Amino acid sequence: MKTYLITALGALCVGAIGYAIWPEPSEPAEAAAPQRGAAMVTVTPPDRLSAQAELGKRGFDAVCAACHGENAAGKMGFGPPLVHEIYEPSHHGDMAFLVAAQQGVRAHHWTFGNMPPQPGVTQGEMKAIIAYIRELQRANGIN
């Protein structure tokens, strides 16, 4: 019994000392909530864009990037990433992008709310923007 009591007291002392000198746990950086406006996905742009996609990039940057982020990576609190498997060509064809820009679209995959129509974007500009998005997607493994 005496040995048991000494062992228990020793363990208690070691535990108390360990608790006193052990550093406080800290939140890992990944656990922090993403900042409003932060990119939602990592997008690696292709080394080279086609001429049509270059035009599309300019149109995208002027009209779409405010909500869909730089390189279509999404923008936390504003709009979803278009370089995402949800927007792969077999699920959202080019016509879906064209109709979304012309008529707007009701929210159905994300919780950002409805997308308003973009009346200032012509059909030709949208085709170039779609070419840009598709080249970004292919460069990131979305076919």
Rank of each mutant, 00 (worst) to 15 (best):
H92K: 14
V41G: 04
A20P: 06
M40E: 15
S26M: 12
I142Q: 07
G59V: 01
C64Y: 00
E54I: 01
R48M: 13
I17T: 00
A66Q: 12
I129C: 05
G74V: 03
P80C: 10
G10C: 12
M126Y: 08
V121E: 01
E27D: 13
D61V: 02
C64N: 00
A20L: 12
L82E: 06
A33W: 06
Q35L: 15
G56V: 00
A96E: 10
V41Q: 08
V43H: 04
T42A: 11
G37E: 01
E24N: 15
V99W: 14
M76V: 10
G74K: 07
N71S: 11
I133C: 08
A38T: 02
H109E: 15
T3A: 14
V121K: 02
V41D: 00
W110Y: 15
S26D: 10
I86D: 13
G79Y: 03
K57G: 02
D94E: 13
A11Y: 10
G141I: 01
A39P: 05
Q35D: 14
M40S: 11
N143M: 11
P89Y: 01
G10A: 13
A139F: 09
G74W: 04
V121G: 04
P25E: 13
I21H: 09
F112N: 06
R134F: 00
A100Y: 00
F112V: 02
Q118H: 13
V14R: 03
A66I: 08
V99R: 14
G120H: 13
T122I: 05
Q52P: 04
F60G: 00
L82Y: 06
T44Q: 13
A96D: 11
G74I: 03
L55I: 11
S26E: 14
A73N: 07
A128I: 03
A32P: 02
A38K: 06
I6L: 15
A38R: 03
